[in-house]
Write a protein that binds this DNA or RNA. Structure first.
Lengths: 257, 257
DNA sequence: CGTGGATTTGAATCACCTCAAAGGTCGTGG
DNA sequence: CCACGACCTTTGAGGTGATTCAAATCCACG
């Protein structure tokens, strides 16, 4: 894709209209508290600025100087490390309501590269702007701490997933997490439009692409999902949740001390 | 937080822990900035209090109300989740200089249970004490943000390890990380006294205990380490580092978008 | 249309796991 | 002080889930 685009260029143009897809409202955004603490309203351009990324555009690169925390309001972003040339590791996917770039906050430089998977709208929050009134700082910092804590726990539960769950469980857990809590609301089935490739999913879950495909097929044969390319429909949420649950037979208790 | 001020004999006792018989000085502690920001001198018991744990003692339990962030100054602590009865998942090991309980900071309750693996000295930092002078708050919060960021990046790199590295690479990476940066200083070999069981190591690395043992044996046969129970000597740091490196042949690049 | 990448499927192999059992080690109680 | 039990550690044998290699579509896009 248009790799060579200057990373910040798209900030210059103002967002005109949201995409067809619904944007996440501030009330569902994990940065809501931060934005409120900053004191600006929705359209305040002082510390919060909106931006749009085309699919494939880079939000920031690993090592690049920190220039703010981002919140995704629509679309999707992946963060990844480049381990070797032509070898990358997807670190996380970021969906509407999620933050991106939090781990760079205290470091002054982004740890990973962030790239939009589709057309994506983001809010850039300039949490380190020196013009933030002093009296607002404590609340802003508090909110950043909260956001970091959430992120940390997310990463910890991912580590647990990668240690204890087999390929099938990882995939099912991933699909259910994509669907969000609403899976339980609609018993009829959930439609997902995956913004990322099979390769990215496999990379993220730490399994081979071929394994991913085969297990998708198996889930389809078992009438648990209906997948056609990037369109996936969860047919039996109850059964899927059952599959996702960690095995409870193994004798893997930790020792006393 | 310096050793010479310790008057209690508990503190003076020499502890035979791995990874450094001596206690870590404040200058090497990841909470140093926090403690300085809190403004107390070395013996200030207002916000910083020392504690000692015998091997097997619990520092806090998952779900328990937050009562401060801890810094390990000697010994070792493991944090773990209890997934089912008699099934646990080690989340992390914490060595002198490390923090424990950071992920509870914004949540009011600890996420995992923390237990000392051997006799362990900790500093408990009461970062939420209402008596902290207002003017110190910003700096304290800044330091907490820094600590959280470090922790988050640590967890992210662990996730990468669990996705891309095989059992042998995980073990070697683990051993090298235990040895710390000093591995490169002493070409003669590094002695490690592991404070945790094989089961805990295997659990932490997401592999079976038997696999761990077999690979320890292989490393021993290859004259890379010399392990007798919990005493491990790294014989060939260069070769070990080579082993730990992620495979660079696989074609696992992420797709363009 | 043709091309390159993404997706899917097959076959064979391998790394790791599970099951089993034989030492070790440590703490406890007789 | 020793015997005992409980648990950790180690080793073997066998099974299997996942990978690697290979190749056939499928798809978007110039």
């Amino acid at each position: 894709m248009t790799e060579h685009n200057a990373t910040n260029e798209h900030w210059l143009r103002q967002v005109t209209t949201p995409l067809g897809e619904a944007r996440v409202p501030c009330s569902q955004c994990s940065m809501q508290g931060v934005c409120e603490a900053l004191g600006g309203d929705d359209d305040d351009k002082t510390f919060i600025r909106r931006g749009r990324l085309g699919g494939g555009q880079t939000l920031f690169r690993a090592g690049e100087a920190f220039h703010g925390v981002y919140a995704v309001t629509s679309g999707a972003i992946k963060t990844y490390a480049t381990l070797d040339k032509d070898e990358a590791q997807v670190v996380d996917f970021h969906f509407p309501g999620d933050t991106v770039g939090l781990d760079a906050l205290d470091r002054g430089a982004y740890t990973y590269t962030a790239r939009a998977l589709t057309e994506t709208l983001v809010c850039r929050v300039d949490v380190e702007n020196p013009h933030i009134p002093g009296e607002r700082q404590p609340r802003v910092q508090n909110e950043m701490i909260r956001a970091l804590g959430e992120q940390l726990r997310h990463e910890q539960s991912l580590s647990i997933l990668l240690r204890k769950q087999n390929a099938e469980q990882r995939i099912v857990t991933f699909l259910l997490s994509l669907a969000g809590p609403s899976v339980w609301a609609s018993a009829r089935g959930i439609d997902l439009q995956l913004p990322m490739s099979r390769k990215d999913i496999a990379n993220y879950l730490g399994i081979a692409v071929e394994t991913l495909c085969r297990l998708f097929k198996r889930l389809q044969d078992d009438k648990l999902v209906d997948s056609q390319g990037r369109h996936v429909r969860l047919l039996n949420v109850v059964a899927l949740s059952e599959l996702a649950r960690p095995a409870e037979h193994a004798e893997s208790e930790v020792c006393a001390v």
